[in-house]
Design a binder for these strands. Structure first.
Lengths: 157, 157
DNA sequence: ACTTAACCTAGTAAAATAGTCAACTATTAG
DNA sequence: CTAATAGTTGACTATTTTACTAGGTTAAGT
């Protein structure tokens, strides 16, 4: 389990999606504007999230992305590992032969540690994060801001 | 709090050091050989660890590095943040103005999450890791291996 | 003096991150 | 049907970080 900015982008985008897609699909353009992440980078991230079966793309006008599961069924660990490619965290993926065909210190240590962090993040769902008031307030503010900043003719709630 | 290979290298090296420096200082050359990390990269990492006051270098023959504190007083979070430079995890270090002078979603979310992970890793000390039998066994094996592989005339315990 | 090993600096190759550009396909509104 | 929307894909670029190399200087022990 690695924790990088890439994973943070993915979690942030998913949180934005979870908040705004309750009525209709959300376009990556909107998420990009609200979270100041480049559209093309979001496309890369969402391509992985889609392949991981976490989001579904809806094409055509009024389309966008929506979640495949409920917010309480999507956890942070899944999001991060979906975009992080889970690159061999110890050079010898599970084979324990990174060092002269033997288990290395890294293995004994980091595998366990990594697993504990994963368990921890698995127990935090998107729903948990959405419940936090602070997040909701910020998201609401950003939501209206985008509506003011960019001309939006469609779905004026 | 970021979790990358760099941090893992640092933790691994510190664990190696904690295990082997109980009698006398440990040279980076030895750690490099045991953990298959390049010597110069270790030097970089230990320069940071030294500046963070976690290790102390002893120059001259018989020198090397030793821990400044007890193994139960050094936690994983400290090691990682010592080498990871704690690069602004949200683009607006604590100022919460990353996006149009307002708190962004990233802030509300990741700051809290990051803090929780930090708290978690803060409660794991080097001593905790050393107590695990598996780690000790591997370390012991590597210890003797190096003595066989490389000609070591000094400090044959 | 000579060796050892920390300490320091600069550079560099490879990888990951972040983003761009352009073409294409599916869907839907008109 | 046609045009607009928006996802999908791939190839390509720039920046940053990671990991490592090469060369030195400094301090301490023999």
């Amino acid at each position: 389990m690695r924790l990088t900015t890439k994973g943070r982008y993915a979690v942030t985008a998913m949180l934005d999606l979870a908040f705004h897609s309750q009525i209709k699909p959300v376009t990556l353009t909107d998420i990009a504007a609200r979270q100041t992440i480049s559209l093309s980078y979001l496309e890369q991230l969402f391509a992985r999230l889609r392949r991981a079966g976490m989001v579904k793309g809806v094409r055509g006008p009024g389309g966008g992305y929506k979640l495949c599961r409920n917010t309480n069924e999507i956890n942070i660990a899944d999001i991060i590992s979906a975009v992080d490619e889970s690159l061999d965290s110890t050079k010898c993926r599970g084979e324990a032969n990174c060092q002269k065909d033997q288990a290395c210190l890294t293995h004994a240590l980091w595998m366990g540690l990594s697993e504990q962090i994963r368990n921890y993040l698995e127990n935090i769902s998107l729903a948990d994060l959405l419940e936090k008031n602070q997040v909701q307030d910020v998201a609401k503010r950003q939501h209206y801001e985008v509506h003011q900043a960019i001309e939006v003719h469609r779905h004026s709630e």
